[in-house]
């Protein structure tokens, strides 16, 4: 194809896109590279080594990080599970519940956690918990995360549900399935890529959360982000770089997984229609 004149082409846009990618990935790659730095001083390069990785698992602070990681992962799994269930129910209610007064308000309420700035949510939650005497700790973090994750799970689930033809459910009902059976045997099998994507998204959001967690965790509990933050405040140390790299790779792996599940689900859907 003759490319001497392409109406869509603007000189420099490709360059800026590359710049954009460099800016986005640069810092992360640098951190990854330096996490293998053999030298204690992070400014001088001392050769490649895994010492910092070993240190996170066995060194002075390893107990702290292990506890923090345990907290982060358990909270994330529980928060993601509960918020996914709530979000799935909500999307069925919103998308297959017909038109009703207050549907818009309901949607606004479900999206509220995304609309409100995170720091406001953090303050409000702290004030609320302390007023009702809710002890600050793992449970308080779990509750706050679950609520905060609902709209994030809701988005992919409802998007998927929107795209499903309502005639499958009608056919199921015509063939004697009640509402629960319709959901279990027809809706859910077709919806599951969306539900899984919602779960993964909620999981990552909870795992990564800093601001809200920092506010309401109370003394003595750390999650990975708060532990990392506390450590960074005292200066960036190499073991932090290693820990960051691990977390980084884990997040990317999760996202890639979610992406491929989504693609497979889409391919299935297309061939069925």
């Amino acid at each position: 194809m003759n490319r001497t004149f392409d109406i869509k082409h603007y000189r420099g846009f490709f360059g800026i896109t590359c710049l954009c990618l460099v800016i986005l990935y640069g810092p992360l790659i640098i951190v990854m590279v330096y996490s293998f730095n053999d030298s204690v001083s992070i400014t001088n390069w001392g050769g490649v080594s895994l010492r910092w990785y070993i240190e996170i698992f066995t060194g002075l602070e390893s107990a702290k990080f292990k506890a923090a990681a345990w907290n982060s992962f358990t909270i994330a799994i529980m928060a993601a599970t509960v918020s996914t269930v709530i979000a799935t129910a909500a999307s069925i209610g919103m998308i297959r519940g017909g038109n009703f007064k207050g549907k818009f308000a309901s949607f606004a309420l479900i999206s509220l956690p995304i609309m409100v700035p995170e720091i406001v949510t953090a303050v409000a939650t702290l004030i609320f918990f302390s007023t009702i005497g809710f002890k600050l700790g793992t449970l308080s973090i779990l509750v706050a995360h679950t609520v905060f994750c609902i709209p994030f799970a809701y988005l992919p689930i409802s998007a998927r549900l929107q795209g499903i033809d309502a005639s499958y459910e009608e056919a199921a009902q015509d063939l004697f399935a009640n509402r629960w059976m319709t959901f279990r045997y027809v809706l859910m099998p077709i919806m599951w890529p969306g539900i899984l994507a919602g779960f993964l998204l909620a999981f990552i959001i909870s795992l990564d959360d800093f601001i809200i967690t920092n506010f309401i965790k109370g003394a003595g509990i750390e999650t990975l982000p708060t532990a990392i933050f506390g450590s960074v405040k005292q200066g960036i140390k190499p073991n932090i770089m290693a820990l960051s790299t691990l977390l980084l790779l884990f997040s990317i792996a999760l996202v890639t997984l979610s992406y491929f599940i989504g693609k497979r689900g889409e391919a299935n859907q297309k061939s069925q229609q």
């Binding site: 033809d165 005639s167 009608e170 056919a171 063939l175 099998p189 077709i190 859907q269 069925q272 229609q273």
Partner: peptide, 12 residues
């Protein structure tokens, strides 16, 4: 029981 115009066969 109904035979739907677009068949609505369960894809999975």
């Amino acid at each position: 029981n109904t035979v739907f115009q677009n068949y609505a066969l369960f894809p999975h």
